[in-house]
Design a protein around this nucleic acid. Sequence first.
DNA 1: CGACTATTTCAATGATCATTGAATCATGGG
DNA 2: CCCATGATTCAATGATCATTGAAATAGTCG
Lengths: 115, 115
Amino acid sequence: MKQIFHPEIEDVVPADVFAALGDPIRLGILVSLADCDEVDKARCGAFTELASPSLLSYHFAKLREAGITRSRAEGNVRFLSIRREEFERRFPGLLDSVIETARRDPSVPRIKLDV
Amino acid sequence: MKQIFHPEIEDVVPADVFAALGDPIRLGILVSLADCDEVDKARCGAFTELASPSLLSYHFAKLREAGITRSRAEGNVRFLSIRREEFERRFPGLLDSVIETARRDPSVPRIKLDV
DNA sequence: CGACTATTTCAATGATCATTGAATCATGGG
DNA sequence: CCCATGATTCAATGATCATTGAAATAGTCG
């Protein structure tokens, strides 16, 4: 079982966060996660409408390495979640307005995550 | 006098905004502008501590083309300002939390703009 | 006009990015 | 043990990026 790298939240830097948000697919992943009813229950494989599996994997890594999301392996499957509390502590208010901005905009693709 | 392109605020899209914010120099320009006492009085030439003139020009263009700033030519000089009201209307609350995030973070370089 | 200043543009560089498809790896179930 | 499933990794692609320094542009002032 390979270790999945997550940066310490204190090491996360604004420019890297915004760079990670600067892609429509990644914004789509983020709003879809945010709109998911059950936190921490979103399978990676549920996002295939947004991109191919290998491209998704690439974008998941970007979000994860920017400190925005957390990936958790459970058996065969991986779950994806937003690092809400940590991120809120590190950059108060930021994620809420980012998500709200992305949620409101039709240019951001999104999926319904059935949990 | 060459025309300077500014996108219509309605044409501005979140992913492009975040991509423009995904660079420490550009964040530095933004917070420095935001912390400038007199709005719309910041000369482009006042940012030379952040980068070389030609690199600054490049970053100014990125911010401008992303709809975040406005450039105004006046004689020999160009002035730079944040498109506050328009941007607030387009993406309510976003710019405030972006600026606050950048302002608080020591990884973002900044200058004192004497006006 | 001619020199000077402020700023942009251009061409060139190497680095990183988004994307693709094939290969790999790990797990769970028969 | 074998195979299917879920997901990542790898190699290769062309595109875009940040940076540099030199050249061009435009305005000002003598």
